[in-house]
């Protein structure tokens, strides 16, 4: 049984704002029957078309999908459209006292429906994917089962600082059916993490040997090993001699046919985050 908070339970047992608005200013629809959840959001603006005065929803989905929709409608009332657009899926989850990670995609669906509704009202391009309805897509489809684009996935990965393909599945469903796109999702994670790190210039100009060793250990612990764990693998740091880093692969990585590829990935990470001259060597340890 899912560990739902009392607030989540309250919102699926007694959902607020179920229904429709006949003269709604904006309507956003996401999801489909085949996906297992769908949300239709109605927004009514005040006379000046500035603030949201009413919001209603219809949702097909599980308890947390109903609760997320209910929470969203409560949160956006009284906000301007620009203020409403600032709401993240994490804030929807926080409003409910948290959601199980496997159910975070429900909060993402709420945020998505809001963006679609506002974009349609403003007449611009629909900013996110809109599965089930073949509207404008941003970017190229990555997850064919759920019709999710790279642009959408990168946004969710970045906003929620996701590190593993499993997390991306929990937040977006991508990769949750046939699993064919999981390698591509991993590439997207690497891409987004790389971009985030470029925004954080923390590398000092000159490294003492001690500082370099500390940094190598930190990067291996925080950036590299969690990604290997996601695939059931691991590595152990055997030695650091100047810029030469010796590692041994463990678990699924040990004896894995693509371990040389993994070693290059480790080297690339260390060069990017520690120093350009680092070389990684795989040893038997």
């Amino acid at each position: 049984m899912w560990d739902y908070t009392d607030k989540v339970k309250d919102h699926f047992m007694n959902p607020r704002n179920v229904g429709d608005i006949a003269d709604a200013d904006a309507v956003g629809e996401v999801g489909s029957l085949a996906c297992g959840d769908a949300l239709k959001l109605f927004i009514k603006l005040d006379e000046n078309k500035e603030r949201i005065v009413d919001a209603k929803f219809q949702t097909f989905g599980c308890g947390s999908a109903i609760a997320s929709s209910s929470a969203l409608t409560e949160m956006i009332k009284g906000k301007t459209l620009d203020e409403a657009l600032q709401i993240t899926n994490q804030e929807i989850a926080d409003f409910l006292g948290g959601l199980p990670e496997e159910k975070m995609h429900c909060s993402v669906m709420g945020q998505e429906a809001l963006e679609v509704a506002i974009a349609k009202y403003r007449g611009g391009p629909v900013p996110t994917h809109d599965h089930g309805h073949e509207h404008e897509q941003e970017g190229e489809i990555v997850c064919k089962c759920f019709g999710l684009t790279d642009g959408f996935l990168k946004k969710v990965i970045g906003q929620n600082r996701l590190h593993t393909a499993e997390q991306v599945t929990h937040f977006t469903k991508a990769g949750g059916a046939c699993g064919g796109c999981i390698p591509k999702i991993k590439e997207l994670i690497a891409e987004v993490l790389g971009e985030q790190q470029k925004l954080e210039p923390k590398r000092p100009e000159r490294l003492t040997n001690l500082r370099k060793m500390q940094l190598i250990q930190e990067v291996l612990e925080n950036e590299v090993r969690p990604q290997l764990w996601a695939d059931g693998g691991d590595l152990e740091l055997i030695d650091i001699a100047g810029s030469n880093v010796q590692i041994a692969f463990r678990k699924a990585c040990a004896g894995c046919a693509s371990s040389s590829y993994t070693a290059r990935f480790v080297e690339q990470k260390l060069r990017e985050l520690v120093a350009e001259d680092i070389s990684v060597e795989e040893v038997q340890g």
């Binding site: 699926f12 047992m13 029957l33 097909f60 599980c62 308890g63 999908a65 109903i66």
Partner: peptide, 14 residues
């Protein structure tokens, strides 16, 4: 048709 299973289970469980 047109209703999700977990929601039904949660309402039954209640």
């Amino acid at each position: 048709e047109f209703v999700e299973g977990e929601l039904i289970l949660l309402y039954l469980s209640e």
